[in-house]
Design a protein around this nucleic acid. Structure first.
Lengths: 299, 299
DNA sequence: GTAATAGTGTCTTTCAGACAGTATGAC
DNA sequence: GTCATACTGTCTGAAAGACACTATTAC
């Protein structure tokens, strides 16, 4: 048992959506999540991190909450002290990010290509499940337990894909050596790797985001000031990784009086012009605390 | 900006239910939550904490998850280093706790008497809201904002009591000086105080527990091996602090095939004997990951 | 007219909330 | 029989899920 001293750092999982593409803020050519030492000059961790991010990205952070604190034994340690990483999840209205700075935005699904089921089930899916099967069969006594986990996480038997099981799927692939970060890594590389356990943290963030978006109207934090309903739907679809039902989506959106028409329309698409909407800030305060649902995915 | 070193500790919010009374594990005559230095001899924080608790209480910990990491600027610091408290929330099957040891179980609602609305709206309610009103009126420019927060948190205008707003209610009372921990504490003392910010941490735990119980079957972690449906309902009511509808409760319980009859009955109550139930461990694995709902409160 | 995108109407099933009722023990 | 507790049947209204349908632009 150590004395209780530790080295503390902050890690940020920052999400944005440009068009149909969800992105995450990275440093080091996409190999790391932005992190920094524990800033204590500010009133709280959260406001300190928020200010730091707004300086880096030149855009305000809408939603932000604590994600998880990682301090487990399987993390590498720097010297004698334990390292504690306090991670936060934030949503940013990504626009043209201030030029030549460090931060880069990378598509979320580069790191988790198997999580994007908006158009179709990704081709990598069958490859992954086949290799996971092989891994499960490799151990006599753990075989049935492993098969259960695989079936459940990837919805094989039940035919039900639970979009929130991001971390469970990543963990399976880690254990099976299908990602480069794994100690028993083979040759099959699923998705872009990251340094340390950053990809696991990212998976935790995606899972939280997908869970949260179903009972809190956080999608608006990703949108520009004016947007069409179609754009909003695309953003939500980008996050949950599944196609949504248009008519039901619109019904649920206006059930929870969160947005209002601006009166303007846009016609950039070659079809019928779309009405523009904006948030209703007065409602936002109250609703932001209670739960108001966003539509579920289709089958 | 400091170097990033900190003093780290673990804090546990451990809940149990005896009969109809929800309890929390405390030390120091009920004034503190159990805490200890960051244990690094174990594989992870969670397993370390779990083992420590099982040694202390002589009962296994069922459900456990990370609650929150507190490190904000308004906490007192011990010397030059920042203190980080990583808190965990756990559920224990409380039974006769091993005799003369340190841990004591105290009724949850001693600390938050206004949160218990199972029988009736507590008498302290009107006293609190009256004093909060007075506090709101004390500031000319913040008055309307404060009134909104009070109305929302205590369900005054909307007539809707949201059981999950435990932390918001505590924060209001802290700001208004109605709890002893507050810097601008007056003479009105609502509920039993705790050292430091432990009561705030406890409020965070209660809020999480009330949220979680609605979409994860964690209530069973509190029950003994055999129990009646009435006992189960009492336990859930104890946590959410509201009465539940019997018939609907039972319907939802058996919709999610979590429990099964043992075949035995009990007749300790003087009325018709009640059937005894137990958990179905096989189902528990799978269901523990997905969401399965517990019934909502009545009006 | 066609192509393309935007937006609506409504049916069915599911399920939470509320009412009432019945069943089985002790005395 | 009464009292006390345990348990069940069923109506209603609010939604989710899925279907087809209409509207407005460019060409």
């Amino acid at each position: 048992m150590t004395t209780g001293f530790a080295q503390a750092e902050l890690i940020a999982v920052l999400a944005a959506v440009t068009g149909v593409e969800p992105r995450v803020m990275t440093i080091g050519a996409g190999a790391s999540l932005p992190s920094g030492p524990f800033v204590s000059s500010h009133r709280s961790l959260q406001t300190g991190l928020r200010i730091w991010i707004e300086n880096q990205t030149a855009h305000p952070v809408g939603f932000m909450e604590q994600l998880y604190t990682f301090a487990d034994g399987d993390r590498e340690t720097d010297g004698p002290l334990r390292r504690i990483s306090i991670s936060y999840l934030g949503l940013v209205r990504e626009q043209a990010v201030a030029g030549e700075g460090k931060p880069e935005w990378h598509p979320w699904y580069e790191y988790f290509p198997w999580e994007d089921r908006r158009k179709t089930i990704p081709t990598i899916h069958s490859e992954i499940t086949a290799r996971l099967e092989k891994w499960a069969n490799g151990s006599a006594d753990l075989c049935s337990e492993r098969r259960h986990r695989i079936d459940f996480a990837f919805g094989l038997k039940s035919q039900v894909w639970d979009d929130e099981l991001v971390l469970q799927r990543y963990e399976l692939m880690y254990e099976a050596g299908l990602v480069e970060e794994s100690p028993n890594y083979g040759s099959f590389n699923a998705g872009r790797p990251m340094n340390g356990d950053h990809r696991r943290i990212l998976a935790t963030g995606l899972a939280r985001l997908r869970a949260k978006i179903k009972y809190r109207p956080i999608a608006v934090e990703l949108m520009p000031d004016c947007f069409t309903l179609h754009q909003l739907q695309r953003a939500v679809e980008a996050l949950v990784g599944l196609p949504l039902h248009k008519s039901n989506f619109r019904r649920q959106i206006d059930q929870q009086n969160l947005i209002e028409e601006t009166g303007d329309t846009t016609h950039e698409t070659g079809g019928r012009p779309a009405r523009l909407f904006r948030y209703r800030p007065a409602v936002l305060e109250a609703r932001a605390m209670t739960g108001s649902r966003l539509p579920m995915a289709n089958s």
